[in-house]
């Protein structure tokens, strides 16, 4: 069996990977995480096991890359955060802020399932939990998210 041209994978899943990165990061960081994700995927692509779901694989990498960027940012001393263009105010900021307030497990489950589109079995695999636990974390996270965003939805 042969591999599809990688370009077709990018075209098919680019938007999905973007949602995962952008939900956790601001625009410039999300753009970095997006290309970090596809660059890592491109490197490993010829050796990828054929039975693996491509989207599950990509979403898992995207999540890890986004977390890497978040950790790099967190290590920066407060006050030395690089200057950025003033972020546009909008629902995306509300979403990122609300997601940031979720417990880590819930945030990961929401991002992987609702934004990455992974079924709970794959979310569970990525989180090292059972599918039931992943489903619970996701639905608790969504409830909390709607509550957090409800006030500013206007």
């Amino acid at each position: 069996m042969s591999r599809a041209p990688f370009d077709a994978i990018v075209a098919l899943h680019g938007a999905r990977v973007w949602r995962v990165c952008r939900a956790l990061l601001d625009e410039p960081d999300a753009e970095d995480a997006w290309s970090d994700t596809f660059l890592a995927a491109l490197e490993a692509y010829p050796r990828l096991a054929h039975e693996r779901s491509i989207e599950g694989w990509l979403v898992t990498i995207a999540h890890r890359k986004a977390i890497d960027v978040l950790r790099r940012r967190a290590r920066l001393v407060v006050g030395e955060v690089p200057e950025r263009i003033a972020p546009q105010r909008g629902r995306d900021l509300d979403l990122a802020r609300a997601l940031a307030q979720l417990p880590e497990r819930q945030r990961e489950a929401v991002v992987l399932h609702h934004l990455g589109g992974l079924p709970f079995v794959d979310v569970a695999l990525a989180l090292g939990s059972s599918a039931d636990a992943a489903r619970r974390a996701s639905s608790d996270g969504m409830r909390r998210l709607r509550h957090l965003m409800g006030g500013s939805d206007g």
Binding site: R16, E31, W34, E55, D92, H113, H114, L115, G116, G117
Partner: peptide, 20 residues
């Protein structure tokens, strides 16, 4: 495969895929 929930996904600005 779960579809992303519309109101969550709609809150995100669309990517500039060509530039990416």
């Amino acid at each position: 495969m779960a579809e992303p929930i519309d109101d969550i996904a709609a809150a995100l600005p669309a990517p500039r895929l060509d530039a990416l």
